[in-house]
């Protein structure tokens, strides 16, 4: 081989996602099996399983993705295409408490901006950011189906409705 290798940098960005495959406790495995048993096709269980992996590992990290691919006999790309489609699935780490403030019309006109400002000032971050200690992430999200009890936000999966700045403080203070 006399010829020089074609320059692949600086454009190239090869990423070796590594060979590690996540593993879970027998309880979690049982839960996963329960979901797999619900469907005639393994692949249908992809979303429930992604939520479990996300719960166990914080987000869909490489080993978690490798696990899903193996468990569902899919290719990592199949996991990737799905994971990046849905807004509740994270391929990047998020804070321990993910505060999702509804910004859609009903909440907007019922005082969402004030709530957002209050939360952000209190935590010292902007929407889309995570606090330095990794405790909180704040996101603005689309309608969460609490228009009648606006304004509202969801922390993790918990609904908090009819929010006022005082109520927001109570909620944030009460978090372990």
């Amino acid at each position: 081989m006399s010829q020089q290798l074609t320059q692949i940098g600086p454009l190239s960005q090869p990423v070796n996602i590594g060979d590690e495959v996540a593993s879970f406790s027998s309880e979690v495995e049982a839960e996963i099996n329960w979901h797999l048993a619900k469907y005639p096709m393994k692949r249908s269980a992809i979303l429930p399983l992604m939520f479990i992996v996300q719960r166990e590992r914080g987000y869909l990290d490489a080993p978690g993705v490798a696990y899903l691919a193996k468990r569902l006999s899919l290719r990592i790309t199949d996991i990737w295409e799905v994971a990046t489609f849905y807004s509740m699935l994270h391929t990047q780490p998020v804070g321990k408490y993910h505060i999702q403030i509804c910004k859609t019309l009903s909440c907007k006109i019922m005082g969402e901006p004030g709530i957002t400002d209050h939360v952000c000032n209190r935590l010292g971050i902007k929407p889309g950011e995570t606090t330095a200690d990794g405790r909180f992430t704040v996101s603005l999200v689309e309608c969460l189906g609490s228009c009648g009890t606006a304004p509202m936000f969801q922390i993790g999966f918990d609904y908090h409705e009819n929010l006022t700045p005082e109520k927001v403080d109570q909620i944030l203070d009460s978090l372990p």
Binding site: P14, M41, S73, R75, I76, D78
Partner: peptide
């Protein structure tokens, strides 16, 4: 340089 290959199994063939 690539991640370990995982086999494909197209949905509609099951």
């Amino acid at each position: 340089p690539r991640p370990a290959t995982l086999r494909v199994s197209p949905l509609y063939q099951i």
